[in-house]
Structures are given as structure tokens and as C-alpha cells.
Design a protein around this nucleic acid. Structure first.
Lengths: 206, 206
DNA sequence: TAGATTGTTAATCGATTAACAATC
DNA sequence: TAGATTGTTAATCGATTAACAATC
């Protein structure tokens, strides 16, 4: 059964399934089951089958799932069977670390434009380009038809930058600034906040 | 009403509340309400009141919450009214960026021991110490009584490193490696996976 | 006092889980 | 065939939300 409205929380688990399947495929394993995946991911097997059932039927009774087939199907569902261009805003310590990190482009996410407000930083080179002034953001991002962005500026600047990105028609933002962004409902935001994760865990430490 | 078992999902929202309250306090605001907080955080006001009610009564009818008082109470609840020592495992690009990032220590999380497996990297200096060989992890972390750790090694090494940390009696792990860790139930794990966040958002981009 | 906002209850909503017929 | 595992249903469980008496 495909169709209707798939819960957001289910979508959030698909990348995790994809990660595990990619690992299994790299290890040369041909078949797997919801039970094995569940064990790898510390998730119930019923949940995995239920999640997948939102998108179709991918397995066979008795034998389970073909690893590479299911991997490819989930890639397709998530639209990661293609490359994506990203804008990066903020080229301080954090922004540079992000730009330098190999994990994005190996998964098809390419940072093709970088912006900063500091005149000292503007013009510095990254990958195959140069850091642009944030004043040019709207025009450049619009012209390049970039639809995803990473925000790595101080909290105080994050909302302003976000407003510019939205004006440039960006539809998805990965926000590293420790602040909740206000965006229209058609814009998606995800948050990276390591400190919040640590603070959550210290609750459980006596 | 305090006591019983507070849902994990509620604990996860406390750092977000704390962040907003800290911001309000810095802006010099003396009082706030669940409605105002809800607006700032794009959360329902009833949820905020319900969440807080797990821990006690912090507000006053008619006037709401005193910002600095509520901030301090949440800090106390989360155990972030003290400093915490962390071990960092992995001093590659990512590990160095983490070690260099100022956002941890400004919130009371101090990286006091760093480990790596590469002989080229061992001995390099960071902050006020030097990178140690991962073979010394168990002894050093035990001796220093470190109870939280950050894992920033390649996926293939993450489970081994985790096992060592658990042997050293670490109770909370912030994992940057793109792999689900297997840990006993008394050990807490949080995951940072920017690629998974991006992959979740591309689902919604046609 | 009148207005505002809390803490809490009860209703709603949604997600997880167990169980099993279907079938490879 | 016998054993294994799917996809799905129905039950359970838990979280969110609306409403409101209490009260500052």
C-alpha cells in the first residue's frame, strides 16, 4: 500500500535503514530480514515492516529482503538517487569544518556556494570556489537554483540569514545555530545541536 | 507533582526550553509565559506547561514564569548547573573541529582527554593536553573518572571504541559515527548525523 | 476587582507492538 | 513439504491538546 500521508517520524527512520542496508551491501550480504535489521538498529522488526509498508512491498515471505534492491528503493523514496546542491552560510570555524567534511559529498550533497559577512573571510577559497559576501546570497542562490542550505552562523544572525534563504526560494535548511528558526510551513528545518544532546544525557547521570 | 518516570521525549525538550530562557535572560527580560515560550519555539503552550509539571510548579497564575528562576531550575533538573568532563575519541578532521569548537566549554562541557589510533596524531597538542593513544583509553578514562565521551572515529571503528568506553565506565556517549551503537541499557547514546537530516528533508523536495 | 495565566484533567490523536493469515 | 518471514490488522500504549477551575 502506497499513498496518503506518511508520518514524518517514519521518514526520519528511512535514512537509518538506508545506512544499515548500505553497510550490509558493502559487506557483500545478499539478503536480510526485518528481524536482522531490527537487531542491527535496536528497533523492533514489526516497526520496520510497518514503516516499509507505507511505500510498497519490498520483501518475500520466507526469504526477507534483497539488500541492494531495498537499499535502492529507499534511496529512490528519499530522493537521494541523485545529487543535491547546497549553500553554506557562515565560514567561521564551524562552517569551515562543515565545508571540509567529506561525509556530505560522498552521499551526493555538494556545497556549491559559500557565504559569509566578514570582509576578511569573503574571497577565501573553498573547494573549487570562493566565499561570497552574504549580501549576494539571494541573487546567487536564486540564480543557481539551490534548494537546500546549511546555516552555520552565530545564533544572533541565524534568523536573518534564514529569511534571506527563504526569499531565495530555499526549501530545506540544516541549522547548526542554537536557536529555533521561524519559517513558513512549506520550508523544512532540521537542527544539529550537540550541546542539547549532551544536556539531555546529563539528566540521567546522577 | 514531581516523581515517577518522566518520559524521555520530555527530557529532550528541556534543553530547548533552557536555550530560549537563556536568550530571554540575556535580553534582560524578567518574566515570560508558556504562550510566549511556545511562540518562540513553535510549540504549543499546553505542552510546555505539561512538560514542566513533571518536575514541580514554577510559575504563578496571572504573571507566568520568572525567566532567570525557571532557567536555573531547568539547569538544575538537567544537572547542567555544574561542569562535566568529556573524553574525545578520534582526532581526525571531525575530532579536531569538535575539540576546537567553543560551544561545548561555554556550556560547561570540557574535553579533558583526547584519543586517537594513528601514531602520527598521537602526541599532537590540543587545548592544554596532548592526544593519547587509544590503547591507553580504558586506564586514563577510568583514572580520570570521566563519565561522558564523544565518538568521532570512522564507522568501522566506532563499536570497538564504544566497547572500550563502556569498560572504562563511561555512561553517556555522543556519537558522530554513522552507525547505530550497541550498548547496555544503563549507557546513554545520542547521535549526530547531519547526512541523515539532509536525507530526511530531500524526501519532501519533489 | 478584572484580566491573565497557571497546573491539571480528560479527550483526542497517533505511534508502537503483538499476532497471524498468506505465501515464498 | 516444512520452516521462515512477510504485510497487515487490531490492540495497546503513550503523547499531545483542549478546556477550565484555581488563583495571582
Amino acid at each position: 500500500m502506497a499513498g496518503a500521508e506518511v508520518p514524518d517520524i517514519v521518514i526520519g527512520r528511512l535514512p537509518i535503514y538506508l545506512r544499515a542496508l548500505t553497510l550490509l551491501a558493502e559487506a557483500g550480504q545478499e539478503f536480510t530480514s526485518s528481524q536482522e535489521l531490527g537487531q542491527i538498529l535496536s528497533i523492533g522488526s514489526a516497526q520496520i515492516r510497518k514503516d516499509l509498508s507505507h511505500f510498497g512491498e519490498f520483501g518475500k515471505q520466507g526469504t526477507g529482503y534483497e539488500v541492494s534492491y531495498l537499499r535502492d528503493q529507499i534511496s529512490r523514496i528519499l530522493h537521494v538517487d541523485r545529487d543535491w546542491s547546497l549553500a553554506l552560510v557562515g565560514f567561521g570555524d564551524l562552517g569551515q569544518a562543515i565545508a571540509h567534511y567529506g561525509g556530505f559529498s560522498s552521499k551526493g550533497f555538494h556545497i556549491t556556494a559559500v557565504f559569509d559577512a566578514d570582509p576578511e573571510v569573503v574571497g577565501q577559497s573553498f573547494g573549487d570556489g570562493a566565499v561570497r559576501h552574504v549580501d549576494t546570497l539571494k541573487e546567487v542562490v536564486s540564480d543557481m537554483r539551490i534548494r537546500m542550505a546549511i546555516v552555520a552562523v552565530p545564533a544572533a544572525a541565524a534568523q536573518d540569514v534564514t529569511d534571506m534563504l527563504i526569499e531565495a526560494d530555499v526549501k530545506a535548511i540544516l541549522n547548526y545555530a542554537p536557536i529555533t528558526l521561524s519559517v513558513p510551513s512549506h520550508v523544512h528545518v532540521q537542527y544539529i545541536d550537540p550541546v542539547a544532546h549532551l544536556q539531555k544525557m546529563t539528566y540521567y547521570l546522577a
